[in-house]
Write a protein that binds this DNA or RNA. Structure first.
Length: 424
RNA sequence: GGAGGGGUGUCCGAGCGGUUUAUGGAGCUGGUCUUGAAAACCAGUGACCCCGCAAGGGGCCGUGGGUUCGAAUCCCACCCCCUCCGCCA
């Protein structure tokens, strides 16, 4: 969330930042509540100071054998007033908290301004989309013909947006996961994590999925658990309420996890293939940094994710998100989009974001500066490195051959026991 | 799931209704001594949060309630850890 002090001190620039995201929050009543809050604190703390003095005095008198009760009666009354004010303060604070949780992060000043994806900016392109001397098939067609992706039986078991991987596709999925994890751990210095899939509600609040976007995720009935919509949730929240040492920063983790999304609101969108399923695998890169280094680290993270696409020899482009397409929590975001012949365009396969201190404030993740001093909020970043299902789709489509089989990219062959072609 | 034990500051560890502004160590910082270091001794230092320009004030002893003029200390609920039993991959 945003710092209430920032909102108070720079109301108009905050208002403008939110407007760039297409958000019109009621900041005036928020600021009014904050003033009310501080007034109550001033009043009730004066009373408590008096209470402390008088109570100590009663104790001293009692020790001296003075059993007078006048002061005790007066305290009873003062105490009641304190109780009422404290209750009101709790209410006001809860209201402020609720309002703050519903306000998105401010965009970074360098983010292109625009209200939707049409204002996103292509930064660069790598590789060349393959030219086919036959009509290329979509990955769901390839997968079905080779009997390595079974959408029919997937639906029987898991309903719409579910699939059963078989044979070469299952192997490819597993191989890609291992390859990605190896690249990031061995070459890029990330420490591997394997997090819980069931996460507490507090975690969903910490990274920003709740309270506003609960319908995008699955909640486990009759429990406090949610099914993680991304490894960002268990990953980032593992350091909730902690003070890290500056020497430990930037902290870098890579987490493989299945992710789960309700996709309510995506009816009719990407209904075929592996692009948009309720359950999908993702290798996620996560970083915790100082405020001074977070944008350098974002650039590195983006390169780390791109490396996987380079190794796979897939054509892709880097797109910078405009203010309106940053999402709720990001201050800055780049997407990696891979060339997908069936879509005849580039399709998102990774999203790399800097959340600055927005999640850190929600989740209370701080670090102690090396020179001592008070703890400061860290900056959190993350990005897919990569979405595995979409990578499988991209490999199947970009490496398909006229006979219906699929070449295995060289970098993956090692991870598939030397297999060079996926067929039936 | 059952029975028992426990959660105090960076760490160890006292406290069990007012003299605690949380005892005492360790640690850390500075000093004395020493060729230097160690040891010893002396002094300082106590996490973290909120309000405040500041002075200062308030809060914080797992979390949240409650009793009381006053709670780390009493009561209730919950969470976590440990031991044993049961169950289980």
């Amino acid at each position: 969330m945003l710092d209430i002090r920032l909102i108070r001190a720079e109301l108009e620039s905050v208002r403008q930042g939110l407007a760039a995201k297409g958000v019109d929050a009621d900041l005036d009543s928020l600021v009014a509540q904050d003033e009310r809050r501080r007034a109550i604190i001033a009043e009730v703390e004066t009373m408590k100071a008096e209470k402390n003095v008088v109570s100590a005095d009663i104790g001293r008198r009692r020790a001296a054998g003075d059993g007078s009760t006048a002061a005790i009666e007066a305290m009873r009354e003062l105490n009641e007033r304190i109780r009422l004010l404290d209750a009101e303060l709790r209410e006001v604070e809860a209201d402020i908290e609720l309002r703050l949780l519903a306000i998105p992060n401010l965009p970074h000043s360098s983010a292109p301004v625009g209200l939707d994806e049409t204002a996103n900016v292509e930064v660069s392109r790598y590789g060349t989309p393959p030219a086919f001397d036959f009509t290329p098939a979509a990955h769901w067609e390839i997968g079905t013909r080779l009997d390595i992706l079974d959408f029919e039986r997937g639906a029987k078991v898991g309903g719409a947006r579910a699939v059963i991987y078989k044979g070469g596709a299952a192997h490819l999925e597993r191989a890609l996961i291992n390859m990605m994890l190896d690249i990031h751990t061995r070459e890029h210095g990330y420490r591997e994590l394997y997090p819980p899939y069931l996460v507490l509600e507090q975690c969903m609040i910490g990274t920003g999925q709740l309270p506003k976007f609960g319908e995008d995720s699955f909640r486990i009935a009759d429990s406090d658990f949610w099914l993680n919509p991304t490894a960002e949730v268990p990953g980032t929240n593992m350091y909730r309420d902690e003070i890290l040492e500056e020497a430990a920063l930037p902290l870098k983790h890579v987490a493989f996890a299945s992710s789960f999304r309700s996709e309510i609101g995506s009816y009719g969108k990407d209904t075929k293939g592996l692009i948009r399923l309720h359950q999908f695998n993702k290798v996620e890169l996560l970083k915790w940094t100082t405020p001074e280094t977070s944008y350098d680290e974002l650039a590195k993270l983006l390169r780390n994710a791109s490396t996987v696409l380079d190794r796979l020899g897939l054509a892709y482009r880097v797109v910078e998100m405009c203010t309106g397409d940053l999402g709720f929590t990001a201050a800055k975001k780049y997407d990696l989009e891979v060339w997908l012949p069936s879509y005849d365009r580039y399709v998102e396969i990774s999203s790399c974001s800097n959340f600055e201190d927005y999640q850190a404030r929600r989740a209370n993740i701080r670090y102690r500066p090396a020179n001592g001093g008070r703890p400061r909020l860290v900056h959190t970043l993350n990005g897919s490195g990569l979405a595995v299902g979409r990578t499988v789709a991209a490999v199947l489509e970009n490496y398909q051959q006229s006979d219906g089989t699929v070449r295995v990219p060289e970098a993956v062959q090692l991870y598939m026991g030397g297999m060079t072609v996926i067929d039936k």
